[in-house]
């Protein structure tokens, strides 16, 4: 079986060509001007452009708010769904997971049309509401998964030792379910901060998010600036995933 390790070679080459090289190219283009000379100009342009910075801040704000709302609405839902005493039906969890299988653009479009017909002013409110619509299932599912697999004897032990139900919830169940919450945060925050088409539908192009600016620049041939903006987004994503890793280590360390 030892020679089998060479079987990974074609895929390794593929990964270098289609994953590593493209990411290096983002860096390459980000530090070039249109003529191909080295420059910091693209970043200077971004950090001195008030509109771009505001859009960037708004994207972060919307992503954080969306993630927060999804936790607040999703945690109780996941908790109820995972609790055999409160929920006996296997169909309800399918109903919550199913939107994950439907094209996000279609779901968003349906939501935007409904808001339109109900006479809501398309803007930041509908943007946030629509995002919650789109991403709530992605928060509920990982939390549900971890709550469902959780060993019930921990909670029983805590109440045997005199903890009130409230204490059992906050001191035992919530900390044990943190890995689920963190993967929920990753699955909601990352797509929200990088979205582009969704925000256009939900605000009727009134509000631009960071992803839209990247897309507009790439599509209008401003590759270098677009690449620089992508690099900024990559940094945000990198920081978020580091957060996840450090939390993971913490949890593993505890157990």
């Amino acid at each position: 079986m030892t020679k089998r390790s060479t079987w990974a070679l074609p895929y390794a080459i593929f990964l270098v060509l289609f994953v590593a090289l493209p990411l290096i190219l983002i860096m390459f283009y980000a530090f070039r001007d249109a003529g191909g000379d080295f420059t910091f100009g693209n970043f200077v342009k971004f950090f001195t452009d008030k509109d771009a910075i505001e859009t960037f801040a708004l994207s972060l704000e919307v992503a954080i708010e969306n993630t927060g709302i999804c936790i607040l609405l999703g945690y109780p839902a996941a908790w109820i769904l995972a609790n055999k005493k409160l929920n006996k039906s296997a169909v309800t969890i399918v109903l919550f997971i199913m939107p994950m299988w439907i094209n996000a653009l279609m779901r968003t479009l349906a939501t935007a049309e409904l808001f339109n017909v109900l006479g809501f002013q398309l803007g930041k409110g509908t943007l946030l509401a629509g995002m919650v619509y789109d991403y709530l299932p992605f928060m509920i599912y990982p939390i549900y998964n971890i709550l469902e697999k959780m060993d019930k004897s921990y909670a029983e032990a805590a109440s045997d030792l005199g903890a009130t139900p409230w204490q059992v919830f906050w001191k035992v169940q919530v900390p044990l379910s943190m890995p689920g919450v963190i993967s929920g945060i990753m699955m909601v925050f990352m797509p929200t901060v990088s979205t582009f088409a969704i925000s256009e539908f939900l605000t009727n192009n009134k509000i631009k998010l960071f992803g839209t600016i990247i897309q507009e620049n790439i599509n209008s041939g401003m590759w270098n600036y677009g690449a620089a903006l992508s690099l900024v987004m990559l940094v945000i994503i990198g920081i978020t995933s580091l957060l996840q890793d450090s939390k993971k280590n913490l949890n593993e360390g505890r157990v």
């Binding site: 289609f18 493209p22 990411l23 190219l25 983002i26 990352m190 797509p191 901060v193 990088s194 979205t195 582009f196 992803g211 990247i214 897309q215 790439i218 677009g226 690449a227 992508s230 987004m233 990559l234 994503i237």
Partner: peptide
């Protein structure tokens, strides 16, 4: 994120 995969490719 999809957009990064898209732009990089």
């Amino acid at each position: 994120p999809d957009i990064i995969t898209g732009v990089s490719l």
